[in-house]
């Protein structure tokens, strides 16, 4: 019984791994290789020629750079803006606080996909289409991040902030020296999830950007895929190259990513 269970578990794991292994294996095969049996997909001879070819002949590196710029800027701004807003909503006293918070909460109900058409019009009116700003700015106000961070700031012991206040610490000091350092894990969860979400975002970049030099990876890659009906090596090289950064990130930050997902539910 135990062995059957183990065997099934391994099979499941294989099913999950095979597409990724296949992608990586095919990417290092020789272009035009002959397929006599299923194992030929995975077995040598290997070659990195397709990598050289893709890197030399396609703008994949530029797009990787764009994805990196957009994801980093989006993440930095989301963390900064939402932590400031959450600090105000959690710690500070001011008029209409409840109302302001309700407006933020209402944002949780607005799915980005349902406002994509008017968002296009708004960004067009602001003359931000086809620019880095157009890719970055629409994603920087995340009500989700504000709500999550606020719940963490709410959980900080009140005496801590009060005693800092009595010691004459200004609000900025309380924010930057006490609240931020104490909630680092929550902020890094938000940061990692935002980064992955932005790195993989498809629909908005697809609408926003029309010049190839501004493409991010998810919208650039499809433009390289047409015309490959027989050859699998180049398409899988493109896929592998565009996945390697995020796979590395996953291997390094796996613990935090998993914690972030279970901590904050799912988003994106």
């Amino acid at each position: 019984m135990k062995w059957i269970y183990r065997f099934l578990s391994i099979c499941l794991a294989l099913i999950f791994l095979v597409p990724v292994i296949w992608m990586l294996a095919v990417s290092v095969k020789v272009e035009g290789f002959k397929l006599d049996s299923v194992f030929d997909w995975f077995l040598p001879p290997y070659s990195l020629d397709s990598y050289k070819k893709v890197l030399a002949q396609t703008p994949l590196l530029t797009w990787t750079g764009n994805s990196f710029i957009v994801a980093t800027a989006t993440t930095a701004l989301v963390v900064l803006l939402s932590s400031m807003a959450a600090f105000a909503l959690s710690v500070l006293r001011f008029r209409f606080k409840r109302l302001v918070y309700m407006i933020v909460l209402a944002g949780l109900m607005v799915p980005g996909e349902a406002t994509i058409i008017p968002l296009y019009q708004v960004v067009k009116d602001l003359h931000l289409l086809d620019s880095y700003s157009g890719l970055i700015l629409p994603a920087i106000a995340s009500p989700f991040a504000v709500v999550v961070l606020k719940s963490f700031y709410d959980a900080l012991p009140g005496e801590l902030l009060e005693s800092a206040e009595l010691d004459g610490a200004g609000l900025w000091t309380i924010y930057s020296r006490i609240v931020l350092p104490l909630t680092k894990p929550a902020m890094s969860s938000i940061a990692i999830l935002t980064f992955i979400g932005s790195w993989n975002s498809f629909l908005w970049p697809y609408l926003c950007v029309s010049s190839s030099e501004l493409f991010t990876l998810p919208i650039g890659v499809p433009t390289l895929m047409s015309g490959y009906t027989r050859d699998y090596v180049i398409p899988m090289t493109v896929n592998s190259l565009s996945s390697i950064p995020i796979i590395l990130l996953f291997l390094i930050f796996e613990k935090q990513i998993v914690k972030g997902v279970s901590l904050t539910g799912l988003k994106g």
């Binding site: 296949w22 992608m23 790195w199 993989n200 990876l217 896929n239 565009s242 996945s243 995020i246």
Partner: peptide
Amino acid sequence: FLPSVLSVTVISYV
């Protein structure tokens, strides 16, 4: 969990 971090483009073409 690994497939979840891949982009929709990659998983679609694979």
